[in-house]
Structure formats: structure tokens, C-alpha cells
Amino acid sequence: MDDRRAIALFLDMMAAERGAAANTIAAYGRDLAQASEALSGRLGAADARGLERLVHEWRDLAATSLARKLSAVRRFFAFLVSEGLRADNPAGDLGSPAKGRPLPKTLSREEVDRMFAVVEEEAASGTPAGLRLKALIELLYGSGLRATELVSLPRAAIKPGTPYAVLKGKGDKERMVPVSTRAGEAVAAWAATLGPGEKYLFPSGGTHMSRVRLFQIVKHLAAAAGIAPARVSPHVLRHAFATHLLEGGADLRALQSMLGHADIATTQIYTHVQSAHLVDLVNRAHPLADRRQDD
């Protein structure tokens, strides 16, 4: 089967069976078409050496672009095998060049504590601004929301006493995120200040708070906590949420679901947590951890 036909079948499967968003399907189509062109129309018939040549050809791309393209190729070959169009999968061990993907910026627990000390002081004043700040930061760090997801939250998205919220994220895909007791209480206190006709949890000028305003609030908070504002953003707090959960022993698949990542490879960037912590976790949790040697 020629590449164009195989790629079309793969994209049909992604749309019908996986429910992939139109933008995702378009990106896969472009990436696979470029891969096919690079291999002279022989992508579907390529062996491991051919795919390594493909990686070499893409070596100067940005890390995020390279990761996306390689993910498309891996999924394409998995599809070919599942449909019986190939007996082997040479893309199974397809890796990236050594330069790899940059690690996400994050914050230490001590830095997060300093930010929350400022938040608590502001919220203790009982002003709407202080209550809003606490609700925003509790949801950013406590639930790992994206900036756009947070500012556009419907007023009814977080229900009192419910330990989770169902959100629409990238590609209009729904996912369930945790809402801690602290976050729930902060949201309830803030929501009590809103008028009865407000549609959004964080309204502004007839619509919802802008991403720009959220970034300004977070950077002002960082400065007040003695942290360089350039190091902090809503996305950095999302990174901190993920990193600190992994440090606490969270399961990578559960974290993938909470963050709304379509590909587990995206979530794996957070496995840069301290190796010493992971070794300690194995030493404490492994079934053989407390077995003592007699000699």
C-alpha cells in the first residue's frame, strides 16, 4: 500500500476511534507527509535504518516539533502493525537526538510555600482581590490547570463538596481534575462575592479574566514572595504541581490524565524529579525493602 493511502487510513482511524481533534489530525497529516517525502514515498516500507535517517534529517528542528513528529511516526507504525499492513514495527525504539527536550521550569516546595504565605496574608484581609487571588493560586498549583482553562472556568464548574471538576481542555476534550478541600473552600469564599448573574468564576468586563491579567497577578505575587518574576508564570505553577506530585510518589498515568496530555511522552518530562527521592521510595516501598541479610 502506498504512503498516501496508508496515511489517509491512519488519520481516519485517529478521527473515528480516538476522537482526535481536527488540529491534531492536521498536524499528524503534515508530519507524516513530510516524513514520506523525506524517504522518497517509502515511509510505510521503511526499516529501522531508514527511520534513523529521518531523525537525522529532522535534527535541527525545535525539540517540541521533533517530539511531535516522532510521536506521529511511532503511532503511524503501530497502526500499520495493528491493521496487519506490516508484520514488524521498526519505530518502536525510535529515539530523539541526544540534545533532547528541555526540562520544564519549576519551583521548589519552599518557594511555593513563600508564595502561599503571601496569598494567605492577602486572603486574610477578606477583600475580593485577596479572595480571588487565593482561589486562582489554589487552582493553579492544587489542580494543575492551564492558564486558559483557569480564566475561562464557568461559575458552576467547581461544586461545593465535590473533590473534582470536569473541564474542557485542548481539542475540547473533557478531563477530570482534582479539587482539594483547600481549593474548594477558597473558590466558595470567592464565589460568594460574585453577583447572581455572573457566567464565569473569574469575570471581567462582561466576559472572563484574560490570560494577560492572570500572568500579571502571578508575577506580582512572585515578586511579593521574593522570587524573580521572570521565573514564575501560571504554567510554571502547573509544572510545580506535576513535579511535586511525582516527588510524592504519584503514578505517571494518573498524572497524564490530570494534566490532559494526549501522549504519555509529554508527561514523562516531569520525571526529572530528584533521583535520590526515587531511590528512597523504592527502598521503602519495594516488597524486599525490609528483608535483612544474615551475612
Rank of each mutant, 00 (worst) to 15 (best):
D12F: 05
M13T: 11
M14V: 15
M14K: 06
A15D: 07
A16L: 12
A16N: 08
A16H: 09
A16S: 12
R18G: 01
R18D: 00
G19Y: 08
A20Y: 13
A20H: 11
A21T: 03
A22P: 10
T24K: 02
A26D: 12
A27V: 06
G29Y: 05
G29V: 02
R30P: 06
Q34P: 01
Q34A: 15
Q34V: 02
S36I: 04
S36A: 13
E37L: 11
A38F: 08
A38T: 11
A38M: 09
L39Y: 09
L39F: 10
S40C: 03
G41C: 06
R42H: 14
R42F: 01
L43S: 02
G44I: 01
G44A: 14
G44F: 02
G44P: 02
A45W: 04
A46E: 00
D47M: 10
D47G: 14
D47P: 09
D47K: 07
A48G: 09
A48E: 12
R49V: 10
L51P: 05
R53N: 09
R53W: 02
R53Q: 14
L54Q: 03
V55K: 00
V55S: 02
H56E: 14
E57R: 15
W58N: 11
R59M: 09
R59E: 15
R59T: 13
R59L: 03
L61I: 02
L61H: 11
T64M: 06
S65H: 10
S65C: 12
A67K: 07
A67V: 00
R68G: 08
R68H: 11
K69V: 00
K69C: 09
K69P: 01
K69S: 12
K69H: 13
S71I: 06
S71T: 15
S71K: 02
